[in-house]
Design a protein around this nucleic acid. Structure first.
Lengths: 359, 359
DNA sequence: TTGTACGCGTTATCAG
DNA sequence: CTGATAACGCGTACAA
C-alpha cells in the first residue's frame, strides 16, 4: 500500500501562497536541513560544491529566510528599536537617517516609534519593541519623562540600551550627546563679541540634560566676559514657537531692555523673531537673535537665524556604533559609555551687527 | 540536605535573564499550556475561574507574550510596514502620525522605512518588511519607481498592500490619494480670480500620479477661464528648492512675463520666491505665487505662501482603515479600492492681490 | 563534511 | 471545558 504522498505541503488557510523554506530546499536537493542552513549562513563545515548547489537552488526558488524563526530560535532579531519624541522638524529625521545608514551597514533594520512627548506612550513603545525582540533600543526621552523604570526591563533582558541627545541625567547609562554646553558657549560668546551685553536666554524643561547644559554654556560665556547673570533674563518654557513669542513679549516689558536673545531651540527663537517684527523692532540692530538646532527654516526667515548645528547624522551613527559595541559584550552590566559630539555654530544675519558696531 | 532549587530555569548564554513564558505559568498553576493560551487569548472554551487564576498569575509574574512565536505560528504578525520616500518636511511625518494612531487603535505596531527616493532601496525595504512577517504594507513610491514588480511578492504572499499619495498609475491597486486635480484646480482658479492671466506651472516627474493630476487641475482651471495653455509656461523638474529657483530664472527671461506661478510643491515655490526677492520683484503685486502641500515654512516666509493642504493625518488613517478591510477579506485578489480625500486651499499673502487690482 | 534530533514560545487540532 | 500533541522555520549540540 502506497503512502499518501501528497499532504506534506500544507497551506496556511487563505494566506501566504508559497513561502520557500529551508526544508523545501533540503528535500529538493536530497540533503539535510543542517547542510542547507550551513550553506546559507556561510558556515565553515561545508563543501564548496554542495554550498554552491544550495545557493543556486535558493536563488532559483527565490528562497527568503524567515527572520522570525531565526529570531525566535536565537532569542535575538536583527531589528533595532528607536524611540523618539517626534519626527517633525529636521533634527530627529536626520538622526534617524544616520541610524538607518549605520544599522543597514551592519545588517540591522530599524523600527521607529514616537512617544509624542508622553511617558505613557514611551513606556508602551518600549514594551512593543521588547515584544518584537529587538536586538537593541535607542532612545531620546520624552519631555515629561522623569522616572526611568520602564527602561530597567530592557537592561534586565540583556538588550543593549543607548540614549541619544536627551538622556537621563540621574542614571548610569550609555549615551551619545552633543556638547550642548560648548555649543551654547560658542553662540553666547559670539553674541557678546557682536557687542551685545544684555542677553536673554530661553530655556526648556530644567530636568532635561540638554537644557541644563545649554543654560550652563550661556552662563559660562557671560562669566568669561565678566557679566553677572540676571535671573530675570532666563525664561523657562516648553520651547514652542508660541512659548518663544510669549517670552519675547515678556522681555519687551522690562524697563532695562535686552539687546540679544539666545534660545535653546529654533522654534522658540522663531516666535521671538515674529514678535519683534510685529513691533517693528529691528533684528539684529536692536535685538540680535540666535537659536539652537539649525532647523531648516533658520535659512528661510528674514533675517536668517543664527543657530547651532547638532551633527544629527553623526549622532545617529554614533548611537549605532555604541549599540554594536555593547552587543558584542553583554557582560559588563553598567558600562557607562558616553560619546560627545562637537557642535558647529552657523552665524547668520540675525546676529551679525555689521562692522560699525563690531566689538 | 536542601535541594538545589535553582536549575529548572535555563539561561540563554549571556542574554535575556528571566523571560516568563506560557509554559512557566502552566507549570506553576498545574494546568496545561493550552489552558493558559486560551485564558490569555480570551477564548470561549474556558472556565471563568481558571481564566482568572491564569490572568492573575500572569500579571504577578509580569508575563510578556512573545509575539515572535505567535507570528511564526500564525504566519502573521501585528506589525504594519510603511515605506515612504523620506521623512523630512511636514507631509510624511504627519501621514505616519495618522497611521500610527489608527494602527495602535487596532492593536498594530508600525515599522517605518525610507526609500530615499531610490527604487533599489525601496525594493530592499519591501523585502525587509516581508521578512519581518508584517501583516500589511503601506507604500508611497519613490520618485524613480517605474517598475512595480517588487510589490508582486507582497500580494502573492497574501499580504494586504495599500498605496498612498504616490501610487502606480498603471497598476490595479488599493490606494488612498488626495484629489490632487481638484486641489490644483482650486488654487489656479484662485489665482485667476485674483486677476492673474499668465500663470506658469512648475511640475514634477510626469510618471507620478500626483504631478499628472495637479497639472491637469491647472489646465482645467485655465480652460474654465477660456485661457489656452502655453507649453512654455509648464516647467518640469524634481521640484527641489533649487529646481524652483532655476525655473523662476528661466521664466524671467521670457519676453512676455508671467504674472503668477503655481508650483506642485512648496519647496519649488520657495525657490521661486527667493529668486524674485533677490531681483526686487514684488510678490504678489508683480508675480503671485502658490504652492502645494502646506509645509510648515509656508507660514514663515515673507510674504507667507498660499498652498494646498493635503489632509495628512486623514490620509494615514484612511490607509490603515483600508488595510484593515483588506485584512479581513484576503480573498478578492484584485479589489481595486480607492479612497479620495478632498484638499483644502490655504490662501496667504503670496497670492492676495488686494482689492485695488481684484478681479 | 554531513545528518539527526531537539527546542525556541505559541497556537490549532483533535481526543477526552 | 480541558489536555496532549503536532506543527511554524530555523540553529546547533551531538553523533556518524
Amino acid at each position: 500500500m502506497l503512502p499518501p504522498m501528497t499532504p506534506p505541503k500544507k497551506q496556511a488557510p487563505g494566506a501566504s501562497p508559497a513561502a520557500v523554506s529551508m526544508a523545501d530546499l533540503a528535500r529538493e536537493l536530497g540533503v539535510s536541513m543542517t547542510t542547507v542552513s550551513r550553506a546559507l549562513s556561510d558556515h565553515h563545515s561545508i563543501g564548496a560544491a554542495t554550498k554552491q548547489r544550495v545557493l543556486k537552488l535558493a536563488k532559483k526558488l527565490n528562497y527568503q529566510p524567515n527572520h522570525l524563526a531565526a529570531a525566535l530560535r536565537k532569542g535575538q532579531s536583527r531589528l533595532l528599536g528607536v524611540v523618539v519624541p517626534y519626527i517633525e522638524g529636521k533634527f530627529f529625521p536626520s538622526v534617524i537617517q544616520g541610524i538607518e545608514q549605520a544599522a543597514s551597514k551592519a545588517g540591522f533594520s530599524v523600527i521607529v516609534c514616537q512617544s509624542h512627548e508622553d511617558v505613557q506612550l514611551e513606556r508602551r513603545n518600549v514594551e512593543t519593541l521588547l515584544n518584537a525582540q529587538v536586538a537593541g533600543v535607542l532612545v531620546s526621552v520624552a519631555r515629561n519623562t522623569l522616572d526611568y523604570h520602564h527602561f530597567d526591563k530592557v537592561r534586565s533582558r540583556g538588550v543593549p540600551l543607548v540614549f541619544f541627545d536627551r538622556t537621563p541625567a540621574t542614571e548610569l547609562v550609555n549615551s551619545v550627546v552633543l556638547n550642548d554646553r560648548e555649543g551654547a558657549f560658542q553662540v553666547t560668546h559670539h553674541l557678546l563679541e557682536q557687542g551685545c551685553r544684555r542677553i536673554a536666554h530661553l530655556s526648556g524643561p530644567p530636568h532635561l540634560n540638554i537644557y541644563q547644559h545649554r543654560r550652563q554654556g550661556y552662563l559660562d560665556a557671560l562669566a568669561a566676559f565678566g557679566i553677572a547673570p540676571d535671573e530675570e533674563l532666563i525664561i523657562i518654557s516648553d520651547m514652542t514657537t508660541e512659548d518663544g513669542a510669549h517670552a519675547m513679549r515678556q522681555l519687551l516689558t522690562l524697563p532695562n531692555p535686552v539687546d540679544a536673545v539666545f534660545a535653546a531651540g529654533d522654534s522658540a527663537i522663531l516666535g521671538a523673531l515674529q514678535v519683534l517684527k510685529g513691533q517693528r523692532i529691528r533684528v539684529p540692530q536692536d535685538v540680535a537673535l540666535a537659536g539652537f538646532s539649525n532647523e531648516g527654516f533658520t535659512a528661510i526667515t528674514e533675517p536668517q537665524l543664527t543657530s547651532v548645528d547638532q551633527r544629527c547624522e553623526e549622532m545617529g551613527q554614533a548611537a549605532v556604533r555604541l549599540f554594536l559595541e555593547l552587543a558584542v559584550a553583554p557582560d559588563a552590566p553598567l558600562t557607562q559609555r558616553q560619546v560627545v559630539l562637537q557642535p558647529e555654530l552657523f552665524v547668520r544675519e540675525s546676529s551679525r551687527q555689521g562692522q560699525a558696531q563690531g566689538r
